[in-house]
Design a protein around this nucleic acid. Structure first.
Length: 239
DNA sequence: GCGACAG
DNA sequence: ATCTTGTCGC
């Protein structure tokens, strides 16, 4: 799939913040009209020993049945440290490498990170959605910013996530007796749409299927490509 | 200065 | 994210 190069990735932290403040104003926070036929999930795994990333994208048909129709992976070195609020500068380059190999153009993409529930309203899902010019939704497993009331322990229940007096997302219970996930619009999406899509793609697990399968995929690739260091000889104890 | 802090 | 075994609960 094609995407726009909006800026270089090799920037300093201050420049990264400026880029976020600029690109944020390009986001469209309204649901895009049109039927959704395919939906993708993306995830990244990190190997600290080789300082490498394993990225994966899985595309599903969207309907009563979710059917896997394509998957794509990429491997590469990490080029930016993890800094809360700047995650996209760390993970987007390797994710884009995987998206570039994708033959399908998914109608919606789910990311394992925040959308606009971010200090500058521009999390990973927003950044990726903008570059790929595709509706995107952030589905994070924990909170970055914002306050919320506890969510009823019933699948489908949610609480609005407030940040600086604005609703930036929802804390969504995708399954009973399980911690909720943090859903927020990325690009070309509004909150009701984000919540609806996240819930419709859950199949008995806490994490929506597209992201869950992308996670399984990157771990599979990681095991396969792991650099096997020869086992250290076992030193027998004498005396 | 202190605490918080997606992956 | 990663390091990691067993274990408690629906």
């Amino acid at each position: 799939m094609k995407f726009n190069r909006l800026h270089p990735w090799c920037v300093d932290y201050k420049k990264a913040v400026q880029i976020q403040d600029t690109l944020r104003d390009l986001l469209i926070l309204k649901k895009t009209t049109g039927k959704i036929c395919t939906i993708a999930g993306a995830d990244v795994s990190y190997d600290k020993h080789s300082d490498r990333f394993f990225a994966g994208v899985v595309v599903f048909t969207f309907g009563k049945q979710l059917e896997k129709i394509e998957e794509s992976t990429a491997v590469g070195k990490a080029g930016f440290p993890y800094i809360p609020g700047l995650l996209s500068f760390r993970e987007a380059p390797i994710l884009l490498k995987a998206f570039k190999k994708l033959r399908n153009n998914p109608d919606v993409i789910l990311f394992d990170g925040q959308g606009i529930a971010h200090p500058r309203y521009f999390g990973l899902a927003s950044h990726m959605g903008l570059i790929l010019d595709t509706p995107s939704i952030g589905c994070a497993k924990s909170r970055l910013v914002g306050e919320y009331r506890c969510v009823k322990n019933i699948a489908g229940e949610y609480s609005k996530l407030f940040y600086k007096n604005k609703v930036v997302g929802a804390v969504l219970r995708t399954k009973a007796n399980t911690n909720p996930i943090f859903v927020s619009p990325g690009h070309k999406a509004d909150l009701p749409f984000a919540i609806r899509i996240a819930l419709k793609t859950c199949r008995g697990y806490r994490i929506p299927e597209p992201i869950r399968h992308a996670h399984l995929l990157v771990n599979k690739v990681r095991r396969k490509l792991a650099i096997h260091v020869p086992a250290a000889p076992v030193n027998e104890q004498y005396n």
